[in-house]
Every structure is written in C-alpha cells, then in structure tokens.
Amino acid sequence: MKADTVGSITPAILVTLNTGEKVLSEHGIMLYMEPTVKLQRRTQRSLGVSRAHLMGMHATGDNEENYFFAEFEGPGHVTFSRDRSGDARILNLNPQQGLRVRSGHLVCFDESVRYYPMVLARWVTGAGDDQEVNYIFADELTGPGGIVFQSYGNILSFQLQPGETIRTSVHGLLALENTVTLNLNWLAGMPMNSPFGGGFQMNSPFAGGMQMGGFQPNNAIPVLDLTGPGVVMVHSGL
C-alpha cells in the first residue's frame, strides 16, 4: 500500500491500493473511498488470533478489541481518520520487525503484516472495595509490510541503545519495538506535608516489577521503565 498523511492537526490517511492489494483497518474509521474499492469483513481468527486469546482479552476488560477488521481491496483510494487531533506515523516494517502500538491508535496495516492483540502492562490501584485492576492493551504488528498509527497529541520518538532506559507515564506510552523490555514501577507518594496531603515520603515497596495487590501509598504513581535496544514512542495527549 502507499499511504500519505493529509492535513496536520487532525490528520487523515490517504491509502492508494493497486489491483488486488489489501489493507485492514478497524471498522468505522473510514472517511471516504472510491467505489472501485471492495469492502470485506475479516475476522481476527483469519489473522491467526485464536478465539481463546480474544476471549481472554475481553475477560480482562479490553472491550474495545474488535472481533472483526474491515478489509479494503484495491484498485482505488481509501481514506481513514481517527477523528482526533494528533500526529500520524507511516512505517514500513522489515520482515520479523515487531512494533507494539497502544490499543486505539492503529489506523491501518498491510495484509502482509501479522497482527496480534496483547496486554502490555497490568497494575492494581486502591485496596479493598476500591481496588481497581488497570491494563495497557496493545496491538503487536510484525513485518513485513506497512502500518499506520496515530497519536493523540505530539509524538516524541527515542532510539534506545542496549541497556539504556527511559521512564514514561503509563498514559504517555504510544509504541515500542518488541526488542524493548518494559517494567512497571511505582513512584513514591507525596510527602505528608504536601499540599495534596495524605501520602508517604518513602520508597515504594513495589519498585522492580509488575506487582499486583497488597498495600501501596494511595497516591503513588505507576510508571513504565523501558530498556533498549529499540525504538520507543511517547505521545503528549491522552
């Protein structure tokens, strides 16, 4: 596929398809298409995602994960929009190159790209009745082929060297290569004399992994430590 960004603030993606060429997208984000383009339904199962895996994703609360994709077959033009302000990225993945894109940001991808939904991180906040399990869902895309995704806000891109680490907020992470290691940590809560009150000046007992449950300062902040090698993208919007 040949993809181009149209506009800047809330970009649309114009895809040019040759005869028989196919591109997949989430159902309902098409802006316009030429009548020569054929629209078909494509199940996740046909992409190699097992039903058990999908059911498991839904059971964790990933209700936005679709069972189907829309498949557009050329020749012709088709345009997509995520209806939000942000920055679009068009990447061509090499064979076996993998990129994990936060769920809800994928615009479209070539039929040759392998798609697999996954849980990137999981953490628990609150305790007792207020306990809440949080997840970051992602779409894992493995080359070869073209992919397009969109951030909400601006994209900051980092090429991490082996062993190099950056820390991001759990909301800020947009995408990472599958060579990047992800660890969830906690930043200590606010000091007792903080105007926000009620917290602790302490080292969190939860540093060093994806711990779940148990006690934690109620205003501790979950963060993601990302260690190279590989590309990490952070976005400025939510």
């Binding site: 506009g7 603030i9 345009t79």
Partner: peptide, 22 residues
C-alpha cells in the same frame, strides 16, 4: 470544517463514498 478539509471536484457521474460525519 472540523479537523482538516479534503476538497475535490467530481466530474459528471463520478462517485465517491464517504462516512456520514465526513
């Protein structure tokens, strides 16, 4: 126009399909 505007001129009987909100 909300977002970016994409303009085109259609020839007689030329057809384009679009989303309602687009």
């Amino acid at each position: 126009g909300y977002g970016n505007i994409i303009s085109m001129t259609l020839a007689p009987r030329e057809v384009v399909l679009c989303d309602f909100g687009a």
